[in-house]
Simulated assay, not measured.
Amino acid sequence: MPDSARSQVREHARRGEAFAQRHEHGLRLVGRAGVAAEGVVYLLVGWLAAQVALGGASTSADSSGAMAQIAAQPFGSVLLVVLAVGFAALLLWQVVEVVTEDETSHRLRAVVKGVAAAALGFSCVRFATGSGSSSASQQQTLTQRVLEAPGGAVLVVLVGVAVVVVGVVTAVKGLKGDFEDKIEGSLSPALRRLGKAGKLARGIAFAVLGVLVALSATGDTGKSRGLDAAFHEIAAQPYGVVLLLVVAAGVIAFGLFQLVTAHRRVRA
C-alpha cells in the first residue's frame, strides 16, 4: 500500500476514534436499550426451556422460538421492531467499544457481542415481517454443509470445543461474580445472586451446546440444533427434568438481571 494511502487510512481511523470517544457516553446510554432487549429474549428462552422440561414446548427453545412467541401476540410485530432498534443500538455501542477499548480481550468481547446483536436484530426484523424461521434448522443445515467440505469434521469439532470453553468461562465468571465491573455503582446481595445464577445457567447451556456441536461431527447434525437441542439433551438425562428446570430458572434470572441493570451498564 502506498504511503499516502496508509496515511489516509490512519487519518480516517483517528477521526473515527475521536468521534467515538466524543459520543461514547451518549451511545452507551442508547446501547443500554439493547441490554434490556437481550434481557427480554433470555426471559422468553428460559420460559421455553421450562416448557421443554415439562413436555409442553410448542416452538424451539432458543432466540428464534422466543421471537416466534412475541410475533404471535397482539402488537407482537411492533414489539419486535422495538427490540430490533434496541439491538441496533447495542451493535453501535459495541462498534464504539471496539474502536475505543485498549484491552484486546475487551475488544474481542465487543466484537462477539456486536455480531450477536446484529444477528438478533436481523432475526427480529424477519419475524416482524413474517419471514422468520427457526435458527435451529438453519444451524443444522449449516453444520451439514461444513461437514461436506474438506476438513469439515475437524472444523466442527473445533467450533464445538470453542463453545464449550465459552460456556465454562461464563459459568466460572458467574460463580466468581466477575461481572460487576460492567455496572455503575454497587450491586445489592439479591442482584448479585441473580447475576451469578444467570451466568452459571447460561454457561451450562452453552457448554452442553458445545459438546453437542462437537458430537455432530460424527454425522448426526441433529445434535447441532442450537440451544433447543442442548435443553432437550439435558432433559433426557437422569433427573434431567429437574436439572433443566433449574437451568431454565437460571436463564430467566439472567434475563431479569439484564433488564434490571440495563440502565446502569457501562459495558454490555
Rank of each mutant, 00 (worst) to 15 (best):
I70L: 07
F75W: 14
V78K: 10
L79H: 04
L79G: 10
V81H: 05
V82T: 13
L83C: 08
A88C: 09
L92Q: 02
L92M: 14
L92F: 05
V95P: 03
V98Y: 08
V98D: 02
T100A: 02
E101Q: 07
H106S: 13
H106I: 00
G114W: 01
V115Y: 11
A116Y: 04
G121M: 03
S123P: 09
T129K: 13
T129N: 15
S131N: 09
G132W: 10
Q140L: 12
T141A: 15
T141S: 15
Q144N: 13
P150E: 04
G151F: 09
G152W: 00
G152K: 04
L155D: 01
V157L: 06
L158I: 14
G160T: 08
V163M: 03
V165Q: 12
V168W: 13
V168T: 09
V169G: 01
T170E: 07
G174Q: 05
K176I: 04
K176P: 00
G177D: 08
G177A: 08
G177L: 03
F179W: 01
E180W: 04
E180V: 14
S186R: 06
S188F: 07
L191I: 04
L194P: 01
L194F: 06
A197N: 10
G198C: 10
L200W: 01
I204S: 00
I204E: 02
I204H: 08
